[in-house]
Structure formats: C-alpha cells, structure tokens
Amino acid sequence: MNLPETGPIDPRVFDEPWQAEAFALVVHLHDRGAFTWTEWADALTGEIKAADDRGESGGGDHYYHHWLAALERLALKRGLAEPEALAMRREAWADAYRHTPHGQPVVLGA
C-alpha cells in the first residue's frame, strides 16, 4: 500500500522548481480574483478523479501534474490564455533553451 512515508517533517516542499511555479500561479491568480477557491478545487478534483479512474494517480507523485493540467484547463476556460498561444509559447521557450549558451539566463526571443 506504500502509505506511510514517516519520519519527521518533509523538508522539501517541492521536488522541482516548476511545481513551485505552478503552485504559486494558482495561489496568485486566486488572490487576484481570477477564480474562486471552490472553482479551483473542482478543477483539481476533476483531474485527480480522471487519473484515479485511469489508475494513474497512485502514490501522489504525480500530484503536480494534475495540478498543472487543472490550472491550464481553468485558465483556458476562463479565457486567461488561448490554446494556440500556449502551444506556440511552449515551443518558443524550448527554442530559447536550445539557443542559449550554458550559464546564461534563458529569455524568450534570444
């Protein structure tokens, strides 16, 4: 069952930076009134339920995958972003990485 991961307090809050960023985006957008917390919980619940139904949610390791999927879905539903723009922007970031020398900050349009 793999339940307890006992020991003292988990020192690492986020496993990877993107998880922290996705977390903060939701809290911030809610603070600014982009959606209510109930709407957010519903969106997250929907993603987790779908993963549960697929047998994929498992040990909670994919929690922030669901979190990000719920955020994207809610952002699109609310018209905060458009699907095409998101896809293009994703590619633009990938390109920016490929063309930025190591050790330099990655910026769009570099």
Binding site: E16, P17, W18, E21, A22, L25, L29, Y64, H65, L68, L71, E72, A75, L80, A81, A85, L86, A87, R89, R90, A92, W93, A94, Y97, R98, H99, T100, P101, H102, V106, L108
Partner: peptide, 24 residues
C-alpha cells in the same frame, strides 16, 4: 549537433508552466 552549445530544454511540465506564466 547543437554547435552553439545551447541548453537542453527542461521537461515538458516545466515548459508548460513557463508558457502559461509568461503569457499571463
């Protein structure tokens, strides 16, 4: 093949967050 010594893009998840965040 990356002769200009670019960086490997991060995970798909990280790119998705960056895309959304930068647009917003």
């Amino acid at each position: 093949h990356d002769h200009d010594h670019g960086q490997e893009p991060p995970s798909d998840m990280a790119l998705r967050v960056k895309a959304l965040e930068s647009l917003l």
